[in-house]
């Protein structure tokens, strides 16, 4: 499924200053029963957003009205655990287009890139700066510039470069996905399969 093109994103951000957030928290397993990719945003961080009686947990950043925006800023080792792509679908559905952390789990990062959510990995120090900036002013804005691979705190002008392979970068900025690429390789793949003993 091709997705929205990503170039420059200017937005305020929602802070989630917790380490090791696993995909079971991002979307609990009981919400994985759909057979279509629809409606996952509602259940994003379900058990951290709502009590078991359905009442809202106001202290959770996603429920705190002072925070908004298309960027999620998260503690280190974000997205560990299960390979469920539903976690990224939920993040996307909810309205986020970029996730910033000092460290991402591998499968999660791949899943992000495959559906058009940009994972921005910054240094631990810069992550602290970002969280402090949001503490100072919850409406602070940030710029994610994919072309020059840079994340910037607008108010302070502080910025940091981030890594992305040129292949994935071109995919993200054109809204292409890997299947678009692989389909054109089918002949080669068939040949490879014929020569393989397995």
């Amino acid at each position: 499924m091709a997705y929205d093109k990503f170039n420059i994103l200017n937005s305020s951000a929602v802070p989630l200053n917790i380490d090791n957030v696993d995909t079971d928290q991002i979307i609990p397993a009981r919400f994985l029963k759909a057979t279509e990719r629809k409606g996952f945003g509602e259940n994003l961080f379900k058990d951290w957003r709502y009590n078991s009686d359905g009442t809202t947990i106001d202290s959770f950043p996603l429920n705190n009205k002072v925070y908004s925006g298309k960027i999620l800023i998260a503690g280190k080792n974000f997205g560990c655990g299960s390979s469920r792509e539903h976690a990224v679908w939920a993040i996307y559905d909810y309205g986020f287009r970029a996730v910033v952390s000092s460290f991402f789990a591998d499968i999660f990062k791949n899943n992000c890139l495959n559906i058009g959510v940009l994972p921005v990995q910054v240094s631990e120090e810069f992550l602290v700066d970002i969280f402090s900036q949001i503490d100072l002013n919850s409406k602070s804005s940030f710029e994610v510039n994919l072309e020059i691979q840079e994340f910037k705190i607008i108010e302070t002008g502080k910025s940091e470069k981030f890594n992305i392979s040129s292949y994935k970068k071109s995919n993200m900025s054109n809204g292409f996905d890997d299947i678009d690429y692989l389909i054109n390789k089918k002949e080669e793949i068939s040949k490879f399969a014929n020569n393989s003993p397995n």
Partner: peptide, 16 residues
């Protein structure tokens, strides 16, 4: 792998 990759493997027996 994630579901996008499941689709890749179903379609092309490969992933990236």
């Amino acid at each position: 792998i994630g579901t996008s990759e499941v689709e890749m493997v179903l379609a092309c027996q490969s992933i990236m």
